[in-house]
Design a protein around this nucleic acid. Structure first.
Length: 271
DNA sequence: CCCGATTCCTGTAGGC
DNA sequence: TGCCTACAGGAATCGG
């Protein structure tokens, strides 16, 4: 499940291969993603050079001479750069052929992703304009999170997964950050001190930075752009470890759904 | 306005 | 072995 570290890993893997390359043509086998790919997409991209690749939240932006290609990997998407003659597999939905003989191929079994061309600035783009802060930016601070949360009785896990507050934190890293900060995932947001918010903000930054270093987390569908898995999977403390011993206190980890999402935590360490 | 529930989708796992 | 169902989850949308 691509969250911020997986998307950033993808961005870094694509940079060398795509920047300064020119798009020859686009070939789409299935337009039906989270929203259908616009019928003008191919024409908008053709003969454009990729200037740079940026990440905003869990979105990638391939900056072109004019406008940009916006890509979201959804639940199960990944991108690879391969020779264009590489045989296509099922769920390979979009190919962006480069003039150098390579092609960027988008693969997404569950089709929750997004691919579109746009020239709107982020402040005006419907998918980008309401996004909250980047968690690795300096302005994402204990003060900020405390102020956002102090009037809310929501479970803290739902708050840090809310992209209108802070972006890029999905179900895996929310659970990992709460474990590191020793905060119970169901604790009400307005019942956490500013000091503990500092622990939580630190934990979110640490876990995301460590995961980026390891090339992300691979469960089922995510791979780095060179086809290797992400290695943060081995560093997970709680995600997917229901019933296994807590790495701090050895008591078995609990799994309780919060907002219909699996949530694994240690009842003893997290308060 | 706020926020939980529902929805999209398909591969996989578990039950019988 | 094979069929069936439940489940995973990002984020838009719905509705109380």
């Amino acid at each position: 499940m691509p969250e911020l570290p997986e998307v950033e890993t993808t961005r870094r893997g694509l940079l060398n291969k795509l920047v300064k390359q020119t798009i020859d043509r686009v070939d789409i086998t299935n337009r039906r993603l989270r929203k259908p790919i616009d019928r003008h997409f191919e024409r908008r991209c053709q003969n454009q050079t990729i200037i740079n690749i940026e990440r905003e939240a869990k979105y990638l932006k391939l900056l072109l001479d004019k406008g940009y290609i916006l890509i979201h990997l959804g639940m199960s998407g990944h991108l690879r750069v391969i020779p264009k003659e590489t045989e296509r597999r099922s769920h390979d939905h979009v190919e962006i052929h480069l003039k150098n003989g390579l092609c960027l191929r988008y693969h997404d079994p569950r089709r929750f992703g997004v691919i579109e061309w746009s020239d709107l600035p982020s402040t005006k783009h419907p998918l980008l304009k309401h996004l909250g802060l980047e968690p690795l930016s300096d302005i994402f601070s204990a003060d900020y999170l405390y102020n956002k949360a102090k009037k809310s009785t929501r479970a803290i896990k739902n708050v840090i997964m809310d992209a209108k507050i802070v972006v890029g934190v999905g179900n895996i890293y929310a659970q990992e950050a709460l474990f590191l900060a020793a905060i119970h995932p169901k604790r009400k947001a307005n019942q956490i001190s500013i000091k503990r918010y500092q622990d939580l903000v630190n934990a979110i930054k640490t876990v995301l930075q460590q995961a980026i270093k390891q090339g992300g987390t691979s469960l089922k569908d995510f791979y780095q752009t060179d086809g290797k898995p992400g290695y943060f999977t081995q560093a997970l403390n709680v995600y997917g470890r229901t019933g296994e011993p807590c790495k701090k206190c050895q008591k078995p980890l609990i799994n309780q759904p919060i907002a219909n999402r699996q949530t694994v935590y240690c009842q003893h360490c997290q308060r």
